[in-house]
């Protein structure tokens, strides 16, 4: 049972830019422990960095949850980013390349979708955002 050897979930509070760095480093370590090759561990770390920054930028604080997942014979790493911020009024717009309300590149969320195998976003205007992504072990 491969799932028996992997770590349990890691919950990380995000409320400063140091927390963004800590979260992505924890993600890289967990990915390496689970057997992800370095190239995918970098992809996972980059994803966590983008999601954690979004929390900070749009909601000021929130949480990143890293969780090993097993579906059938596949083992993967799930990253969940949750906040109680203002939510995203137009998810379609937020997922477009080059769109940013913060004056940045606007490649964060669409970039994360390209990096990961699965991508889900739920946002309710006025009560927060949840992004859940997964990467499967090759």
């Amino acid at each position: 049972m491969r799932s028996a050897v992997v770590a349990s979930e890691v919950r990380l509070t995000v409320e400063s830019d140091i927390d963004v760095v800590t979260a992505r480093m924890r993600g890289r370590t967990l990915a390496a422990q689970m057997g992800f090759p370095p190239i995918l561990a970098t992809i996972i770390a980059t994803t966590i960095s983008e999601l954690a920054r979004n929390i900070l930028q749009y909601a000021r604080s929130g949480e990143i949850v890293l969780r090993p997942v097993e579906v059938g014979s596949r083992l993967g790493l799930a990253v969940e980013a949750r906040d109680d911020g203002p939510g995203i009024p137009d998810i379609g717009l937020a997922m477009q390349d080059g769109f940013s309300t913060a004056g940045r590149l606007g490649l964060g969320l669409p970039g994360v979708r390209r990096l990961m195998d699965e991508f889900e976003i739920h946002s309710i205007s006025g009560s927060g955002t949840m992004v859940r992504v997964r990467k499967w072990l090759p």
Partner: peptide, 13 residues
């Protein structure tokens, strides 16, 4: 680094 270049390229950066 190679891993970073790979990740940037996939992201579209």
């Amino acid at each position: 680094q190679p891993d970073v270049a790979f990740s940037m390229t996939h992201m579209g950066l």
